[in-house]
């Protein structure tokens, strides 16, 4: 299945849930509403044509004005890949856990919470693991995070 076919298929079957984002010439990136995330994910995984059963990656992004959670999915059998993006407010961001769809999301969501401060609902084990246990300096991957020993390099 090529990307064009994938786009057509998603436009036909997931028109209500997925909005294609314009990000240039690459693999399609779709926007998902935060409240629909889990149901859409389950449908994507269980759809016989798509079978997105490989949870590749989950990365948080802080663009300065908003938070994004980018899910990279692939299929073990169908040779296709897609990215989903959930756009969240900068403050008090909350997102549902997709562990019931892909158990692999567990640590990625913990990381999202730990480094970006995006609260993951229904996660079950939101504890620190990359940062020290007694970390109290906020969420270091946010753009506005600053620490005494962190020096920004001057603009080249």
């Amino acid at each position: 299945m090529t990307f064009d076919e994938l786009k057509e298929y998603l436009a036909a079957n997931f028109a209500d849930d997925l909005t294609l984002l314009d990000t240039g010439r690459h693999e399609p990136v779709y926007e998902v509403k935060a409240e629909k995330l889990v149901t859409v994910c389950r449908r994507l995984r269980e759809d016989e044509t798509l079978k997105f059963d490989f949870f590749c990656n989950l990365g948080g992004v802080d663009t300065g004005e908003r938070m994004e959670a980018v899910y990279s999915l692939a299929s073990y059998s169908k040779k296709i890949r897609v990215d989903l993006k959930v756009i969240l407010p900068h403050e008090k961001a909350e997102i549902d856990s997709v562990q019931e769809v892909w158990p692999a999301a567990n640590w990625y969501e913990r990381e999202l919470w730990e480094l970006y401060g995006v609260h993951v609902k229904n996660h079950g084990n939101l504890t620190r693991f990359l940062l020290p246990d007694d970390w109290d300096q906020g969420f270091p991957m946010r753009k506005d995070w600053d620490a005494p020993d962190f020096i920004r390099m001057p603009e080249l």
Binding site: T23, C56, V70, S72, D83
Partner: peptide, 9 residues
């Protein structure tokens, strides 16, 4: 690079 995003593997 122009604004955009990519996941490469």
């Amino acid at each position: 690079p122009p604004a955009g995003e990519v996941y490469s593997r």
